[in-house]
Nucleic acid binder design. Structure first.
Lengths: 242, 242
DNA sequence: CGCGGATTTGAATAGTATCAATACAGGTGG
DNA sequence: CCACCTGTATTGATACTATTCAAATCCGCG
């Protein structure tokens, strides 16, 4: 289970050695020396499910890499209606660069571990290292693609298709080490409550629940203890996504 | 009305002198010399309303700056349901960098003029000039913010609020030279058909039409010849946005 | 003036939300 | 170890919003 991808592994900070962000995230732009430099400013933080990580309108003083778990990004209308606008999995980058304050709130959807980077530290490293900014651009483009895909789900899919699409999204993203293309079946713990799912899909809890029941009765999924889901055939689930 | 922001204006390519992208778009990253270099590869193109600019799954060989008009970005489900996932106004950047092929289609929503840049040319300039990549990052972050704001509209607003939000969006974006904050009233030509609006809002044409009629009867808007809209009070329109 | 596409209006229906009640899971204390 | 308790999830009945299908009207244009 130990990571041995680098010849001079010992030169790399311990925390970085098994970190997804080191390879697929923004830290992939850094060499051993730069990683050490960055690691002098970073700090691994574990937060339990439900903790608010960034509040709406809060001044942004640090960014983070998601190392483990799922982070939920939400926006709220003035009357309290809520919309989940994105989920972040390892090794996603958390935070909005170049904005004085956050325009959304971020919450730990499951227990998470984060690698926090002070704003100043990241900004100064970015100035020295265009590769880092390039990685950030790639991450941002990926999130934009995802947001736009989800707009189709929100705007044009039925409740049944929305719920199927949600399960498909989770199944293909929750395990960062698995290749989504080779996945024929899946088993996972849902990081979100039914309310969260409803807020992500633009539905009510009751509708989500009814559609899950329908998927269960149609043998597309099995549910254990409300939170553990089994998808015997990813292909069959995909057919339900519209 | 002539642009005189640069001391050595004569050094800048003629086309760039009055271009919004020159100041607020990605070309803002370039000095006179670099603009001239870039201009050797670019080509101004006018397209009339309805022209498909980029097809879904099409190989991407060029990018563009929107100089005038409105571009409509859409995605389609396999059964034909369509969703407009974004609108681009001057001086937005059109195209998805670093993707082998387009994952959406782009269409001229009004008559547009574009400044086309071959993929190779942009990529090589980006390598030399990190400032250009920085601008692209800023543009991408802005589009991500917009997409996420729209997700709230799609997921959580009522039909009435959606239509109001749409009109508000158009009013504040259609005229690139006007400051949205100082806008108390507005008059504009809609660049989209009712079908397009419906596809942007995740509604049907009929519902859009009914809500427009309602806004008209409530004196929030006036409509001339189906396409010209007058908003006597932007404040009153904003109240309807939820 | 008349044609064709776009838009509006109308009536019936379907899908999702709302409100209310019940069932379930996980944790607590006896 | 079990009964209880609390928050979460499911199920049921009804209301309402937006869709669907159909028809009428408007608008630009030849």
């Amino acid at each position: 289970m130990t990571t041995r991808k680098d010849i001079h592994n010992s030169e790399i900070p311990v925390l970085c050695q098994s970190c997804e962000a080191r390879h697929r995230g923004i830290c992939g732009a850094l060499d051993a020396e730069q990683l050490i430099e960055l690691a002098r400013h970073t700090r691994q933080v574990k937060q339990q499910s439900g903790t608010e990580l960034v509040a709406d309108s809060e001044e942004v003083n640090s960014y983070a890499n998601v190392m483990q778990g799922v982070v939920k990004l939400t926006k709220m209308l003035s009357d309290g209606r809520q919309q989940v606008i994105g989920l972040q999995f390892a090794p996603d980058f958390l935070g909005r660069p170049f904005a004085p304050e956050s325009k959304m709130s971020a919450e730990a959807a499951s227990d998470v571990s984060l690698c926090k980077i002070p704003r100043k530290a990241l900004e100064s490293m970015m100035k020295q290292n265009p590769q880092l900014e390039h990685r950030l651009l790639m991450q941002t483009l990926k999130e934009l693609d995802e947001a736009r895909d989800w707009m189709v789900t929100l705007g044009r899919k039925t409740a049944a298709e929305k719920v199927a699409s949600f399960l498909y999204l989770i199944a293909t993203n929750i395990n960062p080490s698995l290749d989504p293309d080779e996945m024929t079946s899946a088993k996972f713990d849902l990081p979100l409550t039914r309310v969260d799912i409803a807020d992500f899909l633009g539905l009510t809890v009751e509708t989500v629940s009814r559609q899950l029941t329908k998927l269960r009765k149609d043998d597309v999924i099995q549910i254990e203890h409300n939170r553990t889901f089994i998808v015997p055939s990813m292909e069959r689930l995909e057919l339900r996504c519209g």
